[in-house]
Design a protein around this nucleic acid. Structure first.
Lengths: 249, 249
DNA sequence: TTTACAGTGTGTCCAAATGACACTTAGACA
DNA sequence: TGTCTAAGTGTCATTTGGACACACTGTAAA
């Protein structure tokens, strides 16, 4: 009765990749790591991702890999979809990296992509494992990713935009107390266009997802101090479950 | 130089499963196959699905597997997502079947689910391979599926409903020429509720997706003969690409 | 030939939602 | 005291959504 089977073994055909979007109040960023290639000075810029273990649950694997590479934990991620193009890892420089670290670098790997949204200020990435660095990169500058990670990032962002319209997503991106401007900026960044202040307020309040606090924080700003809001958790949960139809800005 | 690598080899960790929805003019059906278990009289009722080959593209694999098991070909399928729960194939009766056919029946298999919509009348399933039978089953009677196929079918149906609201989906379900009633019935079946005839017509015509033909077909119906419509292909393609916001009934 | 039947096809009204638009106010600072 | 910055607020015209009822056409049966 060997315990051989209990030993964790990487499955050479399966990986997860995580597209973590962060918001700092004005710009949308993507969490990327660098992987160095032995024979080359250039580093690969990629999403955090790695092979998963035999018998490891997909969601669990995504959380584990993200934590191993970037130190981020307790982040709720949602699956985007699987990417399995046989050529997805076949570029020259990608193969160089794979040969330096994988038992079977030639193997086709199907990767399950995940995405999430976090408040950048709450999470400071700390690279480890084969991640040389882990940092937030402006979404519009996140180009030249290795493997098919550009495609994965786009797909994840599309998913984000779609879900933004049907779910009260994006609230994890803001601090507990926030202003209406914060909220609106977030929506503008994700949707990629400006919104009318009054119309935005009207719609958002109708949903009853946010409620005013008795605080007018922000000391020392060179303008009128703004009302602070928080999320109404009970309505939030309710809408999370049901989605909601009319949320088009 | 052995050609070993060129030999197609099944990957024991990867499969595809296809949720094919069919419409016969009044009810929504799901295409299911039966798999017989050697030691048992009871058959497993499942979605068409099987392991994929090393290096085989996912979309290609889905088409191949569907054809092998049911004879259906040239069906455009869309990926739902991956299912990889380590326990997804561990039920007693599921294991019995797997032991009879798989080299590694204990192995955790990640399956990539696909879905599609077809006009039932255009496709008559012909079982082959390990499919004992292949037939259309009423969606509400498609219960008691083996493995985690019930969950997959639900997820695929959810996807269908969501896409119905944002894309001109469901048109593959109808014959080239169709009446407004046909179209409306389709929507009612998928959405699971009745719609107002006049409002439906108004909205649908605004999209300019359908256009009237100079034919009032249907001979010998015990009522006024109805106008036939067809899809406006150019607008159809346009909307397929962009999706469209206002399609909520 | 008359009648019953079944599904087609059409218009209006009201309520709600949407989008466009501009000025006053609070607070900081020079 | 004036200037700057962002906050905060209301109206109107248009579009959209849902609710609602009756006459028409062709068939079949009495």
């Amino acid at each position: 009765m060997s315990k051989q089977k209990k030993v964790k073994q990487l499955n050479p055909s399966l990986s997860v990749d995580c597209a973590i979007f962060g918001f700092d109040g004005s710009e949308l960023k993507l969490l990327l790591i660098e992987r160095s290639v032995e024979s080359c000075t250039k580093k690969l810029l990629t999403l955090p991702g790695d092979l998963i273990f035999d018998g490891e649950d997909l969601d669990t694997a995504a959380s584990r890999v993200l934590k191993e590479l970037t130190g981020l934990k307790n982040i709720f991620m949602k699956q985007v979809r699987a990417f399995g193009d046989p050529k997805r890892l076949k570029k020259r420089e990608d193969q160089a990296w794979l040969r330096s670290i994988r038992a079977k670098p030639e193997e086709r790997v199907v990767t399950i992509a995940y995405y999430s949204l976090v408040n950048m200020n709450d999470y400071t990435p700390k690279p480890s494992s084969f991640a040389q660095s882990a940092r937030w990169v402006n979404l519009d500058k996140s180009t030249d990713l290795a493997f098919d990670h550009q495609e994965i990032a786009f797909a994840a962002f599309d998913q984000l935009k779609i879900n933004l319209k049907n779910h009260p997503i994006g609230f994890n991106l803001l601090p507990v107390k926030f202003t209406f401007s914060d909220l609106q900026k977030l929506y503008e960044v994700i949707l990629g266009r400006t919104l009318d202040k009054r119309n935005f307020r009207r719609k958002m309040l109708k949903l009853k997802l946010v409620e005013p606090l008795n605080e007018k924080e922000e000391e020392g700003v060179p303008h009128k101090r703004s009302q602070l809001f928080q999320f109404n958790t009970s309505n939030y949960v309710l809408l999370l479950e049901n989605g909601f139809d009319n949320f088009g800005f």
